[in-house]
């Protein structure tokens, strides 16, 4: 059953990606601005412009251009970046690890923080402590990631200058890596001073991305937990003499977590979207930051590659969430 679900989702993913490819390809060529206009100096002759357009294949009919691009994709060639003069795949491979590390870190912080606060709030239900948590949470729900980013900059880089403002790693330390997963690699190879330096760079962008998601998790999980705590099986466990924390963790959490997991999946895709602006603010070298450069330069092949990559990430996240929810719900597994 599980395999059938995965196959089904994979097929749907291909259709979705094909749709995304068509839309981004057409959109880029319909909106004003093209890469040739961005790179050529003012006063260039019409002949020069035409020659350049021909060089990049931009003079061909739309359908032909699309055909060339998709044929390349099928062969594993996503084209060459116009501004960076490198294969799109190699540019993305260089930049993606930094974003993966940042997003996973942010997800981990959001789930830990949001889950922890939701559990504490459940333990404190019907006390003033719950009102405090609810009040703060309402404020956190209203603040978007880029506002957090600016607030964090003011706090930790201006008022209390304790954290590095930009980048992923101190350039002097960025040597001797065999992969681009700097944080993972430095931890695995035991270079903890380097890992600490990377983490200090990641704290602010991570928090900016994680706090809005944590707020959503607190709101939903706490509500689900409170409902689950009223169930008969929790009452029966209470009558076995189990303490509150055990009731929440052992009896309520697994039954309450479904909606939160599903929503976390959706919100995680927003978090990935948020990396575009947050990476820009902190000059963090991931694909989000790259996307802004690519768009400013109208680097068509790179933009197309990036959009497909974002689409693929979103689809993988959703499949992952579906599988997790199914794994946690025995009723679904046996249905």
């Amino acid at each position: 059953m599980l395999l059938a679900v995965i196959a089904n989702r994979a097929a749907m993913a291909l259709v979705t990606l094909a749709g995304v490819a068509v839309v981004v390809f057409i959109l880029l060529r319909v909106v004003p601005g093209d890469p040739v206009a961005m790179m050529i100096s003012p006063g260039a002759s019409a002949a020069d412009i035409a020659a350049l357009k021909a060089h990049y294949g931009l003079d061909a009919p739309l359908l032909v251009q699309f055909g060339i691009w998709t044929k390349g994709i099928v062969e594993g060639d996503f084209g060459t970046s116009i501004t960076l003069h490198r294969h799109v795949t190699s540019v993305l491979a260089d930049r993606l690890p930094a974003t993966i590390e940042l997003a996973v870190m942010a997800l981990f912080v959001a789930v830990t923080l949001g889950g922890g606060i939701a559990i504490v709030g459940t333990l404190l239900r019907r006390t003033p402590g719950e009102a405090v948590i609810d009040g703060l949470n309402s404020v956190m729900l209203a603040v978007p990631d880029f506002i957090w980013a600016l607030a964090l900059v003011l706090l930790f880089a201006v008022a209390l200058p304790v954290l590095p403002l930009t980048g992923q790693i101190d350039p002097a330390l960025a040597e001797g890596f065999s992969t681009r997963f700097y944080l993972t690699e430095s931890v695995l190879t035991g270079r903890f001073a380097v890992a600490g330096n990377i983490l200090s760079h990641m704290i602010m962008p991570t928090l900016a991305l994680a706090l809005p998601l944590a707020a959503v998790i607190v709101r939903l999980l706490k509500q689900s937990l409170k409902e689950a705590m009223l169930q008969d099986y929790v009452l029966l466990a209470r009558i076995k003499g189990f303490g509150e924390l055990r009731l929440v963790l052992q009896e309520a959490l697994r039954n309450a977590i479904g909606p939160t997991l599903a929503l976390t999946g959706v919100q995680f895709t927003f978090l990935i979207g948020g990396t575009v602006i947050v990476e820009r603010i902190f000059a963090y070298p991931g694909i989000g930051n790259l996307a802004i450069d690519a768009i400013i330069n109208r680097d068509f092949p790179l933009i197309q590659g990036l959009v497909l990559l974002f689409g693929l990430i979103f689809i993988l996240i959703n499949i992952g969430i579906d599988l997790t929810v199914a794994a946690l719900k025995p009723r679904l597994r046996h249905a």
Binding site: Q231, D232, Y233, V234, L235, L236, A237, R238, I239, K240, G241, F242, Q250, E251, R254, N255, L328, K329, P330, R331
Partner: peptide, 21 residues
């Protein structure tokens, strides 16, 4: 005392068992 000296047989067996354990 609960669970050791006093135990409950509940009314509704459909809701008194945790569905995910």
């Amino acid at each position: 005392v609960l669970g050791r000296d006093i135990a409950l047989v509940p009314q509704d067996p459909t809701t008194a068992l945790n569905p995910s354990r």
